[in-house]
């Protein structure tokens, strides 16, 4: 299990390749990447604030829950903070399992929990000014299915 919280960009292809190559006896690797939407061209950039210390422990806790619940070979979570341009990769998760169902479900679980239980806050800067992104009710509701 590896958790990284960083300002720098990551190389999605290299991360997935390295993650996949490190697995033994795993028949499935699922990865998800979150990308900054362009907002129809009005978004200048996004800023992500986080809570150093709690962020890492929350991501670790969520990943441990996934490992306890599904049969996983490994979990990788990378989440960026700081200023991100439209189209930039914000974060990724990768999961490995013997069969694909565990990897798919665990990746969805990680994403659902990470959205509303990991201490990150997004702020969008547009031509008209800056605004904090409000949490969506459906993100909180998504947790009830687990």
């Amino acid at each position: 299990m590896r958790i990284r919280v960083q300002e720098a960009p990551f190389d999605l292809g290299a991360e997935v390749n390295r993650f996949t190559a490190a697995q033994a006896d795993m028949g499935a690797v699922v990865s998800f990447t979150g990308v900054v939407r362009g907002g129809g061209g009005t978004l200048r950039h996004m800023e992500i604030e986080h809570y150093p210390g709690m962020t890492e422990s929350a991501l670790r806790d969520i990943s441990e829950q996934a490992c306890a619940r599904w049969s996983l070979g490994d979990v990788l979570v990378i989440h960026r903070y700081g200023r991100l341009a439209p189209g930039a990769q914000i974060m990724m998760v990768a999961t490995a399992s013997r069969h694909r169902k565990d990897a798919f479900e665990a990746a969805e679980f990680l994403m659902d929990y990470l959205k509303s239980r990991a201490p990150f806050w997004k702020r969008e800067v547009t031509e008209d000014g800056a605004a904090w992104v409000a949490a969506r009710d459906e993100d909180e509701a998504a947790l009830t299915r687990w």
Partner: peptide, 26 residues
């Protein structure tokens, strides 16, 4: 102390309290 809690929680022994809006990760 870097664990989600609630407003009714006791503060005895707590060293760090953080207040923030609902999180928007991912």
């Amino acid at each position: 102390d870097q664990e989600l809690s609630d407003f009714d929680a006791p503060l005895a022994g707590v060293r760090e309290v953080a207040f923030f809006p609902p999180m928007t990760g991912g």
